[in-house]
Design a protein around this nucleic acid. Structure first.
Lengths: 334, 334
DNA sequence: TTTGAAATTGGTAGCGCTGCCAAAATATCT
DNA sequence: AGATATTTTGGCAGCGCTACCAATTTCAAA
């Protein structure tokens, strides 16, 4: 790009100052509504801003002032509504506080997470928000060195670097197990997705399984769909699981997407839910409330997680762990 | 924040240069792999970078060099998977080309879109991507003045400002009408969501309705769910529509989410699909492929839209309109 | 009026980096 | 060896803005 051409066209603060017949710092103060200035000056400046169509350059502003007011969200997936909800909650708060959310997607790959965190840190964000506690050594080192706030989301079972907001996946897993046991199910299976990557789902599963074992009704069998969680994955995996273990009486799914797939399988095959087979999910997605039978699941505080995380960041709160809990939804599938 | 404290801690390019015993510009060249330098110098610099844990400051870099390599995506909603898919496509390409996606959500509100575009322009992005052609006057003016590339997504029925990528919603609407007519449906209704905001859905509906009228079988009735599109909205709206018009033989939905809600309503009420009532959606979401009966719908090129848009931007392609088309999915609900 | 305090303003030195240019080092050729 | 091309380097002036400070103006009290 031709720099000179750009410089001729670009409206800068200096040009506004000249047009308004005031000093640069005055324009800066007026625009940021910071410091003092007379009403008359303000009007003159605003008139010039309007007339020239001036748009402040935050790049320059940030460089000069240290605070970028950018918050980086590094999330595993956008396909998963869970993270879209977190983003929604966070954006809402950030926008109301002159901050900007910047996000990128790791596809659940730690190496990608590391690369993205590096890229984000180059923008000197106020904070970086990540899913969960499991990060590569390099990621942790960079974050620590950067000095910016770190918020780990949607997990509490582990050691937080700085701030953490969410709920305990282990608790969710055992509550789910207790519920199924209380309802009298005894031959329980599990349908999940790639657990190496989704460590939060892995924690739920581990805890679920432990609880069943402790109650004397150990998990009968499990089927892991290779790949990311999806409705289709849930359907296929349940089909495979039932082929092996036709007399299961309940299945716990790694999340609602997978559970929905399982439910569709049952509908398609005429398997009576929950009489013949009970289904239990995790997340409490809206769609699960509207299926012919509402899904039995656990509602997780997704939007609230984003919101609270953002609030902690904008208020520069001290390091802490915030447990937002979750809610059992009895539904009609278990 | 205390500036001095920060300055003491921050590793800057100058410190790396000093540690490596070379000049600043040499470090800059090595890090950007631009210009020439000896192998030995490169190693010395990289060693220092490694040792000090230096992370380049892109804020400063951008200010000095003019190109931010940021691409702003201003989308209506994250709840709607459509936009998540666009983002996914765009991110993938941008990341592979040293660009960063920055996004924010308008909630379908034009005033919010305008505010967000202003906020994004402050970061001097390479391009701004928006949904559709309908923007406030202020938004258009700002974009024009900014001189950055503009990409309008998922719509072709209107006048593009610069680049446009997507498909024709009007065409999708008439193809949908033709399909239902070809199948022999004659008493057709419509279930949609807030059309003032989702202008693309409005275009589909308008075209759908025109086509039915032209064929001599005008739309019998329609029911608009107040609020954003959702599965629940579809279910409730279909229920209301059928209460008024019990003898409809087919319903066209504003999108798959709404259609899914309608489908669930039919399942719950035992309404035979498609014999008693046919359902037709729009978007071709994955979940619609896995329901007991796959949804009849139109698959839209969402990920490709994001991908192509990003490619056009990174290659600095000339202004143009790219039609990615769509695909009819016959499914089993119509 | 005088005086001091308070409110308002402008000048200017950076923020950390890149682009340009000239200088230095190295390689290649008579 | 000397001269010329080539590669490699460092210095430094900005990029557009904000923080800081000093200068100026305004206001109120004495």
């Amino acid at each position: 790009m031709n720099l000179d051409a750009r410089h001729q066209t670009m409206v800068t603060l200096a040009k506004v100052a000249e047009a308004a017949g005031v000093g640069e710092s005055t324009v800066s103060r007026v625009l940021r509504n910071h410091g003092s200035f007379s009403r008359k000056t303000r009007d003159r400046v605003m008139e010039a801003v309007e007339r020239l169509g001036y748009v402040p350059n935050r790049i320059a502003g940030t460089l000069a002032s240290a605070g970028s007011r950018l918050v980086a969200l590094v999330i595993p997936s956008l396909t998963n509504i869970v993270f879209a909800d977190v983003l929604r909650g966070a954006s809402a708060i950030l926008e109301g506080n002159q901050h900007q959310a910047v996000f990128s997607v790791t596809e659940y790959e730690p190496e990608k997470e590391e690369a993205l965190v590096a890229a984000m840190l180059a923008w000197r964000p106020t904070a970086v928000m990540l899913a969960g506690f499991e990060h590569s050594e390099g990621t942790v080192k960079m974050l620590r060195a950067s000095g910016c706030r770190v918020v780990e989301l949607l997990d509490l079972d582990g050691a937080a670097q700085d701030l953490a907001v969410g709920f305990s996946n282990r608790a969710a897993g055992s509550v789910s197990a207790d519920f199924l046991l209380r309802r009298g199910y005894r031959k329980i299976g599990y349908v999940g997705h790639d657990l190496d990557r989704d460590t939060r789902a892995a924690k739920r599963f581990a805890s679920f399984r432990e609880r069943l074992g402790a109650a004397g009704f150990p998990l009968v069998d499990s089927e892991i769909h290779a790949g990311a969680s999806s409705v289709e994955g849930g359907r296929l995996a349940l089909e495979r699981l039932l082929a092996r273990m036709p007399d299961l009486d309940a299945v716990y799914f790694s999340n609602d997407d997978m559970a929905l797939g399982g439910y569709f399988h049952c509908l398609a095959r005429g398997i009576q839910v929950p009489e013949r087979l009970a289904l239990f999910g995790h997340n409490g997605l809206d769609i699960g409330r509207v299926t012919p039978q509402p899904l039995s699941t656990i509602r997780t505080p997704r939007v609230a997680t984003g919101r609270v995380a953002a609030e902690l960041v904008v208020t520069d709160a001290p390091a802490q762990v915030v447990d937002l809990g979750f809610e059992l939804i009895e539904g009609a599938t278990a």
